[in-house]
Structure formats: C-alpha cells, structure tokens
Amino acid sequence: MKAAVIVFPGSNCDRDAADALTWVTGRPPAMVWHTSNELPNVDLIVIPGGFTHGDYLRVGAMAATAPIMGEVFRAGIRGVPVLGICNGFQILCETRLLPGALMRNASLNFICREVNLKIETTATPFTRSYPDGALVRLPIAHHDGNFFADEETLNRLEGEGRVVFRYVDKAGKRVPAANPNGSRNNIAGIANAAGNVLGLMPHPERAIDPATGGTDGTALFAGLHEALR
C-alpha cells in the first residue's frame, strides 16, 4: 500500500501517522506539503491531526483552502480512500467531503485522555479488520470535537450505516456519560456515502505500540494495508 500524508503548517500528528503507516505496512508514506498542486499516485491519503493555521477562523477552515485539498477532494470523489484524523476530520468536513461540522467541546475544555469506542460498522476499508461491534480504546486530544449535523443529516448517517465510531461506556452502551465532547448521537467518526472517506476524532495512529497507549489502532492500518495491497 502506498500512502500520502498531507502536511500543513500546524500539523502535529503527521509523523505519528507516518510511523503508524511505516510500522504496519513496511513502507514510509509520501509526505506532501499543503501548497503542492500534485498528489502522488497513492492508495490512501491521510489528513493528520494538529492545529493547522492555529485554528484561525474555524478549525480546519484555512487548511481546507490549501492548493492540495482540491486534489484530495477530487481523489476522494474518485473513490481513493481518505482518512482524516482529529484536525483531519475537521478539515474533511470543511472541504465537504464529509457532512457536518466539529464545534467547540460542550465542556469548553481541551480533552486529552483515552475513550471507549464502539466500531459500528466493519463494512469500510478502515474497519474491515475489526470484529463486528468491536469495543476499542483510543486516545482523544481535542478542543473542538463536538460533532454537529442537522436532524436530516443525522438520520441519513444513522440510516445508511455511516456512523463508524461511537463514544460508548465500558459495556458498549451509548450513554451521555460516555460522550466526552457533546457530539450529536455520541458520534466519534463518520464515513461518506461511498465509504471511502473516513473522519474520526480519536487517534488510531497513537495506539499502535503497547509501550505507548495500546494497540487498538493497529487493525485500522493493517486492514487498509490488506485491502489496498
């Protein structure tokens, strides 16, 4: 699998993403600077976490206007898998590859901790290696992870099985207490209608090593590697 990681001013998980991809696939990704007009020919595009352009105006808004994002948009529409993690999720919403928006956490606090998540569908290239209904623990680290979409959009996301990751309690139940940031329907990650674009607030790339944060994120990258080999 050949992957590209898009790097913006203020990206801070680009190297974590590159490490995860290299570790799992044995092949370092291309690191593509945001001002580039050209995407290399790759099987996967990763928009990493960070605080691009200082979160000015709205989270992800400035990055969404970068020259490379036109190429990413066209690739996503063409069916190339695109993975947006944390700020990457925010950027994908701002580019309209994904519906909804990420708002300030309801608590107004920056939250940095592990959360329990349920993988609601394994019918995506990103989650195919997880068992159905898998419960995983991944770290979150964000100030603006409060997923908002109007009722019609939420109903469509739920009805079409496009809610991929959901904040749950240890038993796997969707309860308000398990919702760290106020997201509608406890949503932590969603896919586009075709299933090739995924955005999520938690950080699977920070959960690939038992020495640092567990390994519950490994299957995401391993599944992509198998699907896109």
Partner: peptide
C-alpha cells in the same frame, strides 16, 4: 460562502 462562514452551523 467560500470561507468566512460555515453554512452547516
């Protein structure tokens, strides 16, 4: 429409 406001919210 292009940048200053996000019509979703």
């Amino acid at each position: 429409q292009a940048l200053l406001a996000n019509s979703v919210i």
